[in-house]
């Protein structure tokens, strides 16, 4: 069964409705799709609305992530599981696609290890944070996903995982997509975002890297900044996990899935 995992970027400009319409076509042609989405923008907005603005953690190696204490976790669940996942599932249902929204808690779809502590840089000081409900995904319940696909559903996965002890954890959506794609031995992992792909000199779109062989991947991940760094790392994990190719492509245009499948963007093999 040839499966394509599509990660819908949460950043401004990514056009969910174009992605959903494109999916209808592809499903009609018998393609098997799995969606994974983010939600940091929605979580930030909800946090602001409730007077709990997001606190970000910058790890010593430069990655930023949300400081997810218990209160922030509940806001994250409301925004990501409640709003983004439900509205995306609704949008697909309204197009006649039988979507099935879930997250890593459900049937332990995605199990992650919760880090006992996280290091964060705060105004120059390195600090240890212990109540961070963040995790790194270790296992994906592919039988569950295959069962949903066999029942004709389009799984729509939110970036929430379950810890060993059963706690809800905030996980990175790009890494989640990579782990899901690996578990399913997907043919393609598409990372749709608000740029045409990986660029040598961001934001100059003429420097788009069209082909990126595996061996140049670590160099690329050094160069990449912030969110793109996570995508490149996710790509690396997916390819190591047995996914045939990963494509970082533009999520703002029409038919973004077909466009990416046709190789427009940064194809990493």
């Amino acid at each position: 069964m040839e499966i394509t995992v599509v990660k819908l970027g949460g950043t401004e400009g990514v056009d969910f409705s174009a992605i959903c319409k494109d999916a209808v076509e592809l499903l009609n042609q018998g393609k098997k799709l799995v969606f994974v989405h983010g939600g940091s923008a929605e979580a930030n907005a909800l946090g602001e609305g409730l007077g709990t603005p997001p606190k970000m953690i910058t790890s010593p190696s430069g990655y930023t992530s949300r400081y997810t204490d218990r209160k922030t976790l509940e806001i994250f669940l409301m925004a990501v599981n409640g709003k983004v996942n439900s509205l995306l599932t609704e949008q697909l249902q309204m197009l006649g696609v039988n979507a099935f929204g879930l997250c890593g808690l459900d049937g332990r779809l995605m199990q992650a290890t919760r880090k006992e502590s996280v290091q964060s840089i705060e105004n120059g000081k390195r600090k240890i944070i212990r109540d961070d409900y963040t995790g790194k995904i270790e296992k994906v319940n592919s039988e569950l996903l295959m069962a949903l696909l066999d029942m004709g559903y389009l799984p729509v996965i939110a970036p929430v995982a379950v810890s060993e002890k059963g706690e809800a954890l905030n996980v990175d959506a790009d890494r989640a997509a990579a782990m899901v794609a690996s578990a399913l031995k997907a043919e393609s992992l598409l990372l749709l975002t608000a740029v045409p792909g990986l660029m040598k000199n961001f934001p100059d779109e003429s420097t788009l890297i069209r082909q990126l062989p595996m061996n140049q991947l670590s160099a690329a991940s050094e160069a990449a900044q912030g969110r793109m760094k996570k995508k490149v790392l996710g790509a690396e994990e997916a390819l190591n996990g047995g996914v045939s190719r990963v494509i970082i492509a533009d999520g703002r245009i029409q038919n973004p899935i077909s466009n990416a499948l046709a190789g427009n963007g940064t194809v990493i093999e």
Binding site: Y63, S65, S117
Partner: peptide, 11 residues
């Protein structure tokens, strides 16, 4: 002793 820095991060 500070716990080992595990490189990963949330959404």
């Amino acid at each position: 002793l500070a716990p080992m820095e595990q490189e990963d991060w949330g959404e």
